[in-house]
Amino acid sequence: MVAVSHSAADQDALDVGALGAVVRRSRQRMGLSVEALAARSGLSTGLLSQLERGKGNPSLQTLSRLAGALGTQLVLLLQSAQRHGEPVVRADARPVLPDVDPGEDEGPRPVRELLTPDQNLPLQVIRTVMPPGFSNASRPFRHLGMESVHVLSGRLDVVIGEVRHELGAGDTITYECSQAHWWLNPSTSDETVVIGAVTPFAG
């Protein structure tokens, strides 16, 4: 849990220099200029430029608006800043990622934990626990990059385009993400646990 007081940049809570580096890298990964990020967040270009240089004392409201403009949550933005430059993610400190577009599905949702120290690195490693019967067939993914998925336990069906691949514990699949793809846990009683390495996609 990130400790914050009236100012998110309190010396005991957050290194503003690290925060600025995370914001700059996130903005560049999304292909945004400072001006474009200012327009998306409703913040001034001067404030953003100052923050990216590691200066200033941003409020929680400012950081919340900034996180939304960067497509993340405030807590994840702060955690990324706290871990900036730290290569280890401890087992009891894994950030839980927000659900990915659940739509109208009211069933149990997968739990996704980030295993890499920064949400904005060129590569993300994610541990996913899928409940029995879970499928995102109604909302398949499609984005740039590569993905490699290893099944730790249970069974996993991965459908890429029109081709279905059935995997069991110990199996690994690697594929281009530019084709529509979706996952299914075919079991009606057991969870499926997978580790996935993926190139993050912006927006």
Rank of each mutant, 00 (worst) to 15 (best):
N120G: 10
P87C: 09
C177R: 09
A36L: 11
L37E: 06
L144I: 07
N120D: 14
V158M: 08
L114E: 04
S41C: 08
P95K: 07
G17E: 12
A81W: 05
V4E: 01
L156W: 10
L32T: 05
P200V: 09
G168Q: 07
Q28G: 03
S80I: 01
H143G: 03
V194Y: 09
Q119P: 07
V158G: 02
E176W: 03
E113F: 04
G107Q: 13
H84V: 00
N136S: 09
D92M: 00
R164A: 07
G46L: 12
P87V: 13
G103W: 13
L115W: 09
T174H: 08
L184I: 00
T62K: 02
A36G: 04
L43A: 08
R40G: 05
I160V: 15
R29F: 13
E104M: 04
Q11Y: 02
E106D: 14
P200M: 07
L51N: 11
P98I: 05
S153K: 10
L32D: 11
F134S: 02
S153D: 14
L76Y: 10
Q119A: 15
R142L: 09
L14H: 01
M1G: 14
A21K: 12
V158I: 12
A21H: 06
T192I: 06
R83L: 04
S187E: 09
G161V: 05
P98D: 13
L144M: 05
R29D: 14
V129W: 06
S80H: 01
G170Q: 05
R83F: 00
E52P: 13
S189K: 11
S59D: 00
E166Q: 14
D10F: 00
